[in-house]
Design a protein around this nucleic acid. Sequence first.
DNA 1: GCAGAAAGATGCGTGCACGCAATTTTGCGG
DNA 2: CCGCAAAATTGCGTGCACGCATCTTTCTGC
Lengths: 207, 207
Amino acid sequence: MTGLRERKKQATREALQTAALRLALEHGPDNVRVEDIAGAAGVSPRTYNNYFSSQKQAIVSAIAAHRADLLAAAVTSRPAGIGLGEAVIDAVVASYADPGDHPAGAMLMIASSPALRACYADTATMIEGPLTEAVVSRHPGVDPLAARVLAAAVAAAARIALHQWLHATTTPPTMPGFVVPAGSLPDLVRAALTPLAPALDAAVPPA
Amino acid sequence: MTGLRERKKQATREALQTAALRLALEHGPDNVRVEDIAGAAGVSPRTYNNYFSSQKQAIVSAIAAHRADLLAAAVTSRPAGIGLGEAVIDAVVASYADPGDHPAGAMLMIASSPALRACYADTATMIEGPLTEAVVSRHPGVDPLAARVLAAAVAAAARIALHQWLHATTTPPTMPGFVVPAGSLPDLVRAALTPLAPALDAAVPPA
DNA sequence: GCAGAAAGATGCGTGCACGCAATTTTGCGG
DNA sequence: CCGCAAAATTGCGTGCACGCATCTTTCTGC
């Protein structure tokens, strides 16, 4: 049974997220104070920081929410036949391929603000814990430390892909056709994760 | 020629580092304000944040300084004959094996304060840039994105090792002999990096 | 239902991070 | 030696993050 308590908490969280995103889009990300977001969500400013530990976090969280959960589920639901590398990479790519139902211009705003870019790139590390559990759940034999390290490596690679992509969308005209190989985020994520495949495949005991 | 300017800047930085470390050891890390550190270093509080972007950073920086440079040099100086995995892992392990000349109790203090722990663990990511350059310098053929990803993966693994080690030194008595395999930091770093070796070795073109 | 416990929300106070503009210091020709 | 431009330092003001004490809401056993 989902108590009133938890439902209300979730409602407040979502109210803060949507309010933060809306206000940031309306007035620009740097012209919104925590006080404004809290007010729009009908809550005290102090309460905001009970939900989010930074001012930008509510904004990016509105976009990146649930990615970690989806990813973990995706990893465990891959057939056990394929290698860990393929399973993990496909799952991560899939999680970033889902566009979500965000207001148009949200990603553009994130890409335009350096502070938001950094904060959004950091959401990639949120997959670390769930991914670790998903890996050990899929392959109970692997060393727990190895699972943690590989999950962290995957998260780091995703972060780099995100960073690169955000940088590319804001800085298109630098030496046309020089260092920008892929424009689509899923493709970029796959490219960033591919170098890690050998390590992922080698981690599972050679059954 | 090293101008007066840069030497003075470096002197101020070191003064802030040593002052921060000394005051933290004397009064406890949470009883030292930026104002105190700046005062002890003979500089205005505002100037502190021109050198360090957080209050804890001067403290951990006093311990972790130059590790990135040493590491990069160590990677490039490995014989080209051995694989990239071995070269990188040995270099990272070596960089963490050097104890440095810090006041006794400094590491213990860092391990004891959660905030300092987190900040110190984050110093592991400082190797990312230099390590990327070191890798492409050693193997000009590798894809730059792959080099960045692998460097980030190594940094993430080192961060986990650091985290684990700091956690172990403060929480010794949890089920004796259960999940704590290695006590020495270099050993732990090596154990954390080993799962990445296949990826590192696979990255260099099979000459 | 109800009393007590548990969890959440709020107000307050402190210290921090940092943009900005004014000021001082340093480096470099002339 | 001097003035000037670049760079560093400083003070100030704003908003943020968060510990703590308090009050309110929700849950649980009876």
